[in-house]
Design a protein around this nucleic acid. Structure first.
Lengths: 213, 213
DNA sequence: GAGTTTATCACACAATTGTGTGATATCTGA
DNA sequence: TCAGATATCACACAATTGTGTGATAAACTC
């Protein structure tokens, strides 16, 4: 029997080592490589075929969502399972929009993880134990993120989010970036809409979740 | 030779499974148990002796810092290594104040982790590769957290932080808790001082870092 | 049972944030 | 080359947050 070729991506080396150790014990799974962020995943895929990609949502350089989009665009047959600590609705919705096959919380058991990889390989949807199909459905329908896809946050906007996260006031941010407070306010306004949050607190929290900062 | 008895604590099952798989390969280490949060660690220690405790900083119910305090109080000979994604200065300082032996980032390699456990067993301080002794020293001196120790955040205050993190306004929080807005404002005021932050954004960010929410 | 911590509230005021609306210049990709 | 995205700014105003100060009662702690 042909082994399932799995590629692991996580920014924490310990997590990678651990996942590899767990998966190596299963006869039908072969870990063909590891990556520390999305770009490394894309590099790897250019060289070697992969059946299932196990992706951490939060990664620097290129996060799980963006990586999934790129991967599914160029390699639609690769099954993507997102591994995350986060169980927020909007993320799950986005996930399936970009074509991920599954979604597992990091507190799933190793047995569930292994089964998930096998299921994904066969094209089945993989969901975290605590989420039912119905929950996903209702989430997908919700008036969360608009019709489109993942919002594109610009470089400048990320600079602003970072400074807000550092507890700077609008005035201080304006000074730091050599622009007017009006400009900073506009950036924030746009970010609120793009990220679907109500205030700076929600924005920074989500930015951390998304690995933006 | 007697094996080093190691207890693992992390709220993510996958992480536990992974760590166990990694450590089991080393001849001189024996993983005697796992725990999902601090209380389970204390329960375990009542029953069985442990040499080295590998603790995740962020855990529900009882976080790594609090757990370390309790553990070192009752079992001073247990060596505690904190495992975390966080490299914030104030945390490191607090860590050594409560008597932890070591501090490792989750992106350390498995080799470094194993060596760290062996070093800790021999009573050596264990630091993440990117931190020098000098850095730690300067951090310990810094005017970060006042003279005392870890600030004690009350139950009620945590409720407030959680609601703020959910993007509620002071008015909405007051309604949710059946108190006046003045009361909520007071709780926030106290939290700002205790947590040494300037505004709600910083507070929520730090609360997440600290595993408070 | 005296002192401390926790939780509650008031009032007033300053500072900051968030919103609505509209505008201009540059850059960028199709 | 032209539409759309990005980055900039203005002005006004509403809403919310944060600060200073002081007070009371219950619970917990030594």
């Amino acid at each position: 029997m042909e082994k399932i070729k799995v590629l692991l991506a996580d920014d924490h080396q310990i997590m990678l080592d651990g996942l590899k150790a767990i998966l190596s014990k299963d006869k039908s799974i072969h870990v063909v490589g590891t990556a520390n962020h999305g770009l490394e995943v894309l590099e790897f895929l250019k060289k070697e075929p992969v059946d299932v990609l196990l992706l951490d949502l939060q990664m620097p350089v290129m996060d799980g969502l963006e990586t999934t989009m790129h991967v599914k665009k160029s390699y639609p047959d690769v099954q993507v399972i997102m591994l995350t600590t986060n169980d927020e609705g909007s993320i799950i919705t986005s996930l399936f929009k970009v074509g991920a096959t599954g979604y597992l919380l990091k507190n799933a058991s190793k047995e569930y993880l292994i089964q998930g990889i096998k299921d994904a390989f066969e094209g089945k949807k993989v969901l975290s134990p605590h989420l039912t199909e119905k929950m996903i459905e209702s989430l997908s329908e919700g008036p969360k993120i608009k019709p489109g896809d993942i919002p594109k946050i610009t470089k400048r906007e990320i600079e602003v989010v970072k400074l807000i996260a550092q507890e700077l006031t609008t005035q201080e941010i304006a000074d730091a970036l050599f622009v007017s407070t009006n400009t900073v306010a506009t950036h924030k306004r746009n970010l609120f809409v793009k990220m679907d949050v109500k205030n700076s607190v929600g924005m920074v929290k989500k930015a951390v979740d998304w690995g933006l900062i």
